[in-house]
Nucleic acid binder design. Structure first.
Lengths: 185, 185
DNA sequence: GTCTATAGTACGATAGAC
DNA sequence: GTCTATCGTACTATAGAC
């Protein structure tokens, strides 16, 4: 493969998923991922911070969407969270859905990856809280709304992998379920 | 120091906190922690899975307390979570409170440690959910209650570090605040 | 693209408790 | 003697510096 073959990042993601699937995450070296993608280890580390990151790409974009969603939402905490989830929907493509189950399986089978996943979700929650604070929401209300939002995101993601369709719609329904449960706590 | 000096684990924890405080987490090697504790790297890894674990000890005990608390609680999700938090209180000693601020500062300054912290909290939540499912709570209700419980645990911990006293009381109040906020979502 | 530091593993040897 | 905590050493792989 040539030096300027396009989509280096995507090729790395696909190669990593394939290799993790074939031989397990622990038994796969970064150099091997790079090799299968027709690249070198150095190039890998130019695209991803570490070995795990290849499974968690696009987080910065999602954080930006969360901020934008909350900034443009109505003045009610869970309404802001809903706007954030809806804004995130643009990144939930068909290809992402196709890779989702394999990705989840790899993450579930490894502690390091579950750590990264937990931190990622905590980062989403923190960004939601910060954005809501800037909109004048009280800290406690913002924290509660954000945690419920993350729960809805998780549940919505799992459901979306199963049924497909528009992620925004699925997430909205998931959040409504979570809100109803929280109200009768 | 002799081979059988007592409290090896505690010595490692203290040495680690001191070194992380003096020179930062990244600039501290495991071998250095062991050396200051009068031990070797091998012994360190007999006590802790990895470099981070020295800041997160005692998790297994807490999981057991959560399970026991929920098993013996009344048949209402947030009541079960409250019982879990109260049961955890026995591990919140004065020494732990004394080390708390330094520990939090080290964790806040490092991504790897924040990952471990996030996974630890996710583990608590998962254990709460599983225990509640065994008590017949619906999955959604259990997940919501557990997330609210983890939020109360975080807020209660921060408050307990400030004001001290009985952790059970502080956590109970924190959970009541969180519940009130959730109900008017 | 090569090299270094170090996290983390594997395993046998050893020293003390019992 | 057994048991267990500790030690010593050799090893691999990752993160990152040069």
């Amino acid at each position: 493969m040539g030096r300027w073959e396009p989509d280096a990042r995507d090729r790395l993601v696909r190669a990593a998923l394939d290799l993790f699937d074939e031989q397990g995450y622990e038994n796969t070296a970064v150099a091997q991922i790079a090799e299968r993608a027709g690249l070198t280890k150095s190039t890998y580390f130019r695209h991803f911070r570490d070995k795990r990151e290849v499974l968690f790409g696009g987080q910065d974009e999602l954080l930006g969407l969360i901020v934008a969603g909350i900034e443009g939402a109505q003045a009610e905490p869970l309404g802001m969270v809903e706007a954030a989830l809806v804004a995130m929907a643009v990144t939930f493509s068909e290809e992402r859905r196709a890779n989702g189950p394999r990705r989840l399986a790899v993450i579930a089978g490894n502690d390091e990856l579950r750590e990264r996943d937990a931190l990622k979700m905590a980062g989403f929650a923190r960004t939601m809280v910060d954005s809501m604070l800037r909109r004048g929401v009280a800290e406690l209300d913002a924290q509660v709304a954000a945690e419920l939002g993350i729960l809805a995101l998780r549940r919505g993601y799992a459901q979306w992998l199963e049924v497909g369709g528009d992620f925004a719609e699925v997430a909205r329904r998931a959040l409504e379920e979570v809100r109803a449960a929280a109200r009768e706590c």
